[in-house]
């Protein structure tokens, strides 16, 4: 029998305070207009900022592009590796561990030394899709790998083939539906991570949502509080989705 007495409630109560207070304070700070007045001034002046919408859109586009890269490149590569080249598994595992070992700030240092052109690549914000893909890689890889192991891909593929299905049909009708929870989970997580990512965007001088929050925060802290609230809601929505498709398993992203 475990006892759950005063000590337990004290620890959880203190933790609750530590985690809830900053969120409440952020919301109320975003409504603060100085001298005891509260209202929506910060939100109004945010909406008047010409660069709010463009940076939000760039981040959303990058989030979607990263999700697309996971579904269209990572998932097929892992499925094919599993079916045709299982000997390459250690190579894949090594690649998936690399982004953890090479912190974002180190990778961006290496990237900016190595790639000074061509302009069609490094000149557009979509260049960020490449580092963001690798930022999401360790977590997406883990989720998809668990998904593939759970369904016995080889047997399913053989069964499909003996029924005369083409490879495309098997992937479309058997493999992808089985991997759907893993894929949706990794996409939501990656989307949340990309929406808050700052390091690559700031060093490579692209104006994304997190860069905007930082810029706004330098002279308009209440507006930054409003944006932080929005950012928390985005993370919260994405994680709620992850928990719903992942049957309660929490997942961890990478942009600190």
């Amino acid at each position: 029998m475990r006892r759950f007495g005063l000590a337990g409630w004290t620890v959880l109560g203190l933790a609750g305070l530590y985690f809830i207070v900053p969120l409440l304070m952020t919301v109320s700070f975003s409504l603060w207009q100085g001298h005891g007045n509260y209202g929506f001034d910060a939100y109004r002046s945010l909406l008047a900022r010409p660069n709010l919408l463009p940076s939000l859109i760039v981040s959303i586009e990058l989030g979607l592009a990263t999700c697309a890269a996971i579904v269209l490149l990572l998932a097929p590569a892992m499925i094919f590796m599993h079916l045709y080249a299982p000997k390459l598994r250690p190579v894949f595992e090594f690649i998936a561990a690399l982004p953890f070992v090479v912190p974002a700030i180190a990778l961006v240092a290496g990237l900016s030394v190595l790639f000074t052109g061509p302009d069609w690549l490094i000149g557009t914000p979509f260049y960020l899709t490449i580092p963001y893909f690798f930022l999401a890689l360790p977590y997406a890889y883990r989720a998809i790998d668990v998904g593939i192991r759970a369904i016995d891909l080889t047997t399913l593929t053989e069964a499909g083939q003996s029924l005369g299905a083409s490879l495309g049909q098997i992937i479309r009708m058997v493999v992808l539906p089985s991997l759907r929870p893993a894929l949706i989970g990794s996409m939501l997580l990656s989307f949340a991570v990309v929406m808050g990512e700052f390091t690559f965007a700031n060093v490579l001088l692209f104006h994304t949502f997190a860069v905007l929050i930082n810029e706004v925060g330098q002279n308009a802290p209440t507006e930054a509080a409003a944006l932080s609230t929005l950012s928390f809601l985005i993370t919260w929505g994405a994680m709620l989705g992850v928990l719903m498709v992942g049957r309660g398993n929490a997942q961890l992203g990478g942009a600190r």
């Binding site: 997580l189 808050g196 700052f198 932080s228 919260w236 994680m239 992203g253």
Partner: peptide, 8 residues
């Protein structure tokens, strides 16, 4: 909370 980090 584990994923709410960085600038926000």
């Amino acid at each position: 909370a584990a994923n709410f980090a960085g600038v926000p």
